[in-house]
Design a binder for these strands. Structure first.
Length: 109
DNA sequence: CCCTTGACGAAAA
DNA sequence: CTTTTCGCCAAGG
């Protein structure tokens, strides 16, 4: 097998899996947790490779609670439906009441 | 091998 | 206040 497990990526997947049901987190928060606060982009990029993995990428949004990565999902609004299905209020790709559903990995730390 | 793009975010101007 | 640039690092062309 080919170890495509990039050190950084693997951590991102690990944290993403820790996101509890009905909660969301941001790329920056994960990056910050990993000690790479300025590598938020890498987190998103890592998520790109999360396809086929047990990573709830739909629970990971940008800092504004905006579903920026929804374009990477199958449908157009699949990501939003998944979040709403978990009790998260999402309107126009924007998570409502973000502060209430926001989950910080530092909380687990 | 060089250049561009990319699921972000914060700081600087 | 808004707009622009930088940083981060990897992968695709």
């Amino acid at each position: 097998m080919k170890p495509e497990t990039l050190n950084f990526f693997d951590k991102v997947y690990a944290v993403a899996r820790l996101i509890p049901y009905g909660k969301v987190t941001s790329y920056g928060a994960i990056a910050n947790y990993l000690g790479a606060a300025k590598s938020a982009r890498m987190v998103g990029y890592a998520m790109n490779g999360s396809h086929g993995k047990a990573v709830p990428a739909h629970r990971v949004v940008n800092r504004k609670g905006l579903l920026t990565g929804k374009h990477h999902f199958d449908g157009t609004n699949l990501m939003q439906q998944l979040l709403e299905s978990e009790g998260i209020e999402v309107i126009d790709n924007q998570i409502q009441n973000l502060d209430s559903v926001f989950w910080d990995p530092s909380k687990v730390l």
